[in-house]
């Protein structure tokens, strides 16, 4: 039987890789993909906990998380398209309007 910590470590690995992607990549689309990775790692740990605590609630919660993630991707990509149309760039560091 696989202990809970294994799942959590895997989740941590995926999460960290996702964070590294967010921090390191310049392309906004890769950043969005990294965000999806982070989402998945969280889902994984949620399901693992639900499994080990014998709870259905955790699983139902994952359904909601996945739905919200899908919504987020849809809106995020739409924003990306809109930004690209206007600025002709997908590099995050060139989008620094928040400074002013």
């Amino acid at each position: 039987m696989i202990p809970l910590s294994h799942y959590l470590l895997l989740s941590l690995a995926l999460f960290s890789i996702g964070v590294a992607g967010v921090l390191l990549r310049r392309s906004i689309i890769i950043v969005l993909m990294s965000l999806e990775l982070i989402f998945n790692s969280i889902n994984l740990s949620l399901v693992a906990f639900a499994h080990f605590l014998q709870s259905m609630t955790g699983r139902v919660f994952v359904v909601f998380t996945i739905t919200v993630a899908a919504a987020e991707v849809a809106v995020g990509l739409a924003i990306l398209v809109a930004v690209y149309r206007r600025r002709k760039t997908v590099y995050v560091e060139e989008l620094n309007e928040m400074k002013h």
């Binding site: 964070v19 921090l23 950043v31 995050v92 560091e93 620094n96 928040m98 400074k99």
Partner: peptide, 14 residues
């Protein structure tokens, strides 16, 4: 510190 760059903020957050 307010560079306006998203990834700086994220880095500080992590």
């Amino acid at each position: 510190t307010t560079t306006g760059k998203l990834q700086h903020y994220t880095l500080i957050m992590v």
